[in-house]
Design a protein around this nucleic acid. Structure first.
Lengths: 256, 256
DNA sequence: CGTCTACTTGACCACTATCAACGCTGGTGG
DNA sequence: CCACCAGCGTTGATAGTGGTCAAGTAGACG
């Protein structure tokens, strides 16, 4: 149903050496932590990476309240991050795709302040924080890369903040779809045609609106010819219209 | 009008040695970067800190689009951070008080993705990023502290996200007031009685509501006896009520 | 095939944005 | 010293967006 995983079927576990995948050969190494590392450094990083078997839809990558021990890089699939609010409600703080680093918000905390669960069958690379830290001593570039990822995460959150604090339902959905498309594009997929791995409920939760509203906006967009939405399959027909709607600058044409 | 600044009036500039203030003697050193540093390390950090003269209300600490060169620790006063959206509107991403580190969102970017301006007369300590980076080589604790601050920033943003995506006007204001109070408390001031350094307009912008709504909520809270608001002076009369309103857990009593 | 959940659509109403008017305060210049 | 002005803050009236409730459809899964 989902695109097939690179996983071999061999019951590999934990140790990188039991698994075919290595950072050096990973298709994501230009997007992920090895980005600015030398061949040698990449190999050192590779050694501390724990690659576990695929986790299934609904499984936890890490759970709010667990001791903060590792960062995780998503190899395939996607996850949603969320916190449980005091009133018991789940609040989705973000969706993450392949090559993205998750768990960063745990820094400075003894435990994970949020949970991450797989939205589909997903494989992750685990980076134990103490080893990563130790490795950082001798690899300034790795250090920079981690800081970099955190800076990115902060900017991402602030962009979201920016959106949630002002925008209407239409603007939020337009932005959300475009943003997802761009992220797929960076990973070599089509920016205009993709599959939403998250439910409407999750989208609604994340964007701070009612499910009904999400549904209505999708329908409206479809009627207007901006997108073609059939269940989770999305085709963006008029990216410029969406870009205009999302409140992005009118002067620069849409990047997808 | 504001509390007097520790600044001496001597036209000191740039070099720490021309200024009385040092990290070791700074009243904020248990909240700021020196937090987990040894006496010796603090001294080393102290050497790269540039302490400039006070900046006045409305002045920029750094400006969106400028090359990312430094982090800044707020010594006294307060600032607002904001980005200019494509439509030309200003969007306030956060308010920051003494001891907080700003500029973190610039990591991984060549330029600052947001601006910071003083809300009142403010003094900052500038930490040039290249020197900080260099110092990090030999000081793992400093590294941790920076990561720590970034983790904190991410969590802070996510908490805000959480709020903006769901809450009503009352909930937002209640949360905002309580949160400010707690931050003042951490700095040794009263959590219940303080002065808002930002205008209603800024609050509205930040919380994603109209100024009129902010004003109405303040009035409503006052009539209900939750707070006493006279212009920018705020007294929290019933923290528990605010806590309940803000959607925090009902079981745990309010922490202030 | 039945059940459960996700999703859609419609009706209604509350909340809050918007528009408008006005008081207040602080700063400026005569 | 006072008149004036600009920006902030408050309050009222109105309208629109989007949440809630309700019902029904479609799709997933055992």
């Amino acid at each position: 149903m989902e695109k097939t995983l690179p996983h071999t079927g061999v019951p590999s576990n934990q140790c990188a050496s039991t698994n075919k995948t290595h950072c050096a050969s990973c298709s994501l190494n230009t997007l992920c932590l090895p980005l600015s590392l030398s061949k040698n450094d990449t190999e050192l990083l590779d050694r501390i990476v724990k690659r576990s078997r695929p986790i299934h839809k609904g499984d936890y990558v890490f759970k709010q309240g667990e001791p903060f021990r590792s960062l995780f890089a998503i190899r395939t699939g996607s996850v949603k991050n969320f916190t449980i609010r005091s009133d018991g409600e789940e609040q989705i703080t973000g969706f993450h795709l392949a090559s993205e680093l998750i768990g960063l918000s745990g820094f400075n905390d003894v435990e994970y302040p949020e949970s991450a669960v797989a939205l589909e069958t997903t494989t992750v690379c685990e980076l134990p924080i103490d080893q990563l830290d130790h490795l950082s001593d001798s690899m300034p570039n790795l250090r920079k890369q981690v800081l970099s990822s955190m800076g990115q995460e902060i900017r991402h959150d602030q962009q979201l903040l920016l959106m949630l604090s002002k925008k209407t339902a239409d603007e939020r959905i337009a932005f959300f779809i475009l943003n997802l498309g761009r992220r797929f594009q960076r990973r070599g997929y089509s920016a205009k045609s993709f599959r939403l791995s998250m439910s409407r409920i999750d989208i609604a939760n994340h964007l701070g609106m009612a499910v009904e509203t999400v549904s209505r906006v999708f329908t409206r967009f479809q009627k207007a010819g901006y997108v073609q939405a059939e269940g989770k399959e999305i085709v963006i027909c008029d990216p410029d219209a969406l870009s205009r709607m999302s409140g992005e600058s009118q002067d620069t044409p849409c990047t997808i």
